[in-house]
């Protein structure tokens, strides 16, 4: 699951998957701006076939939070 999340992040940000580490966030991934963040949220919902709540979406600010939220949402 971690790898799938990172792969989606990499594709949406247009960077190589290797460059997405556990600490990946808008602060250290150049192209991670607000627009790509929106695109990422939609792409993750699509990838994991899940509809997240507004609070969950707002909380998904970096890789760690994204992974935690998706795990809590117990998506597969």
């Amino acid at each position: 699951m971690e790898q799938r999340i990172k792969a989606v992040i990499a594709r949406i940000m247009g960077v190589s998957p290797d460059s997405i580490g556990d600490d990946a966030s808008p602060a250290n991934v150049d192209k991670w701006d607000s627009l790509r963040h929106l695109k990422l949220m939609l792409a993750l919902e699509e990838e994991f076939n899940v509809e997240l709540s507004e609070d969950q979406i707002v909380g998904m600010t970096d890789y760690a939070q994204i992974a935690k939220t998706l795990k809590d949402a117990s998506v597969s």
Binding site: R11, I12, K39, A43
Partner: peptide, 12 residues
Amino acid sequence: PSLAQIEEERSR
């Protein structure tokens, strides 16, 4: 296809 797949295809 999915957004992620679209982006992957466009990167080629």
